[in-house]
Amino acid sequence: MSTKLHIVSAVQLREGCWHRDGRAVTEWRQNESLAAWLSDQYRQLNMAYPKFFKMDSLCKLATLAVEVLVGDETPVNPQQTGILVFNRTSSIVSDCAHQELISDSVNPLPSPAVFVYTLPNIMLGEIAIRYRLSGENLCVISDVARPEEIFMHAELMAASGMTELILGWVDVIDQQARAWMLRVKKHDGETNNSQLSTQLIKDIDNIPTWTHSLKS
């Protein structure tokens, strides 16, 4: 495969704050829950995007990650920007919320706003809506991040005409969150960076899942 990719910037969630290219861009503050932490991070990033509050925690986490990654530098070719997200626990948080509502034996009353988030690929939709991205998008459910698999999907997308990719891993279960995100562009230079990228992915995926907790 001759497609060359290189990483423009990388975002990680580490110990409750966001890092971009190795530098912290938000700070961890004490919050009573993961939900409150998500709102706090949103405010720290001055996002002014009220739709954020309608999302489930998985989509909120993905939206924050992409906000840190992309910021004001919106992709120049929205039709050729692909979104590729890996995830292990699918939309478990909203799945459980929906299940609880319909299990009410007296008055089962599902909430449409909860049900729409019972699919993991809704995060791709939320990212696409926020940045008006209409390129290819794929959500892959995987136990662990396998660099070779991630890069294969990225290369296939690039080979099909995507010039830029937003690529990452986003998971939320209970009070645990895990996210990293890369901005990847097609590379015109002579060297093939996929070796380097594979290494970077390995490093990135070594970050531990962050569990929201109160400082004791």
Binding site: P78, I83, V116, I129, S134, N137
Partner: peptide, 29 residues
């Protein structure tokens, strides 16, 4: 081809932008 309509979580955009692009790209491919 695969595209994103980038409009709403469940509803399609009024002129079916995502659908149009998917059909056009598939033909091109």
């Amino acid at each position: 081809a695969n595209t994103n309509d980038a409009h709403h979580q469940t509803a399609s955009s009024p002129d079916g932008t995502g659908a149009r692009m998917a059909m056009e790209e598939a033909l091109k491919e």
